[in-house]
């Protein structure tokens, strides 16, 4: 079954991927492929959009409609697609820099208008492709090439950002809990509104080596396990214990009309008005 999914959804001629040994991005892509299958519709109804960075190489490998766009703007590109193709599942894959730095404005506005797009954030807390500069989710005190003595700015919590801005499906998982990740992505795709799945993933080369994890994939995976805490467990932990941890789980899952459906309703209303006018004349 798994091999079939890989064959169905991957562009095998594009293998191997550019991702480094121990990188978690391939695990996220695997979850995404299974989620696409579980979605239960034709793969020709899927648009997969990315910006720039390691995560954004995903659409190069996935055999659906794919767009590799400019840094930070994947959501804006996706918005244009979704408005004209409301029946398609529009999925954005992006890194933490794409999502919360250069594209932060698009992210919060897509959440505000509840755009029916699923955003999967490959959150490794670093700019990996350019070689390890601080990103908006680099942990406090962590080392990066632009923070050689430790990051002194606090990180963004992408889940809090999405909740505050109005996203209707907000969840976080990690590459350490793959079955859960599959499930969250499917739910995100099925949600009729803006869905955010923040995925904690390791970058052994650009982050791990600078932060006492070395490039060893196992050590980096262990780190992912240590910094992620399920919601239930987190409720019993003190603020001090939760410092530097990412809480995982589903944070919001509500039905709320988004811009796409508002427009469909408006179009129908205008059509009816036109028809009524025609009858009167």
């Amino acid at each position: 079954m798994k091999t079939e999914i890989v064959k169905k959804y991957l562009r095998l001629d594009k293998m191997p991927t550019v991702w480094c040994p121990g990188c978690g991005h391939g695990i996220i892509m695997g979850s995404l492929l299974r989620a696409l299958e579980l979605r239960g519709r034709s793969k020709n109804d899927i648009a997969l959009v990315s910006g720039i960075g390691c995560s954004s190489r995903t659409p190069g490998y996935v055999d659906v409609h794919t767009l590799h766009t400019t840094h930070g703007r994947a959501i804006a590109f996706a918005t244009g697609i979704k408005m004209m193709k409301p029946d398609m599942s529009v999925i954005v894959v992006m890194g933490d820099g794409d999502c919360a730095a250069i594209g932060g404005n698009h992210f919060i506005h897509a959440a505000r208008r509840n755009m029916d797009i699923t955003a999967v954030v490959y959150n490794n807390g670093i700019y990996g492709m350019t070689g390890g500069q601080v990103s908006p989710t680099t942990p406090y005190d962590a080392f990066a090439t632009t923070a050689p003595y430790g990051q002194m700015e606090p990180p963004f919590d992408i889940v809090e950002l999405a909740l505050g801005a109005g996203a209707t499906y907000v969840a976080r998982s990690s590459v350490h809990n793959v079955p859960k990740l599959d499930e969250l992505i499917v739910k995100g795709i099925k949600n009729n509104g803006f869905s955010v799945i923040d995925v904690i993933t390791p970058c052994p080369i650009a982050y791990g080596r600078r932060n006492k994890l070395t490039a060893d994939p196992m050590k980096n995976m262990q780190w992912v396990k240590e910094v992620t805490v399920p919601r239930k467990k987190a409720e019993e932990m003190s603020e001090e214990e939760l410092r530097g941890k990412w809480i995982t789980g589903v944070f919001r899952d509500v039905e709320h009309v988004g811009l796409v459906n508002l427009y469909i309703e408006l179009e129908e209303k205008l059509k009816r008005a036109k028809e009524n006018k025609g009858e009167e004349a």
Binding site: H71, Y127, M129, T130, G131, Q133, T145, T146, P148
Partner: peptide, 18 residues
């Protein structure tokens, strides 16, 4: 802000500032 192929310029500057 980092971008290939400029990144080394600002990496070295950030180091010298730090």
């Amino acid at each position: 802000y980092p971008i290939t192929p400029q990144t080394e310029v600002v990496e070295l500057l950030s180091e010298m500032c730090a």
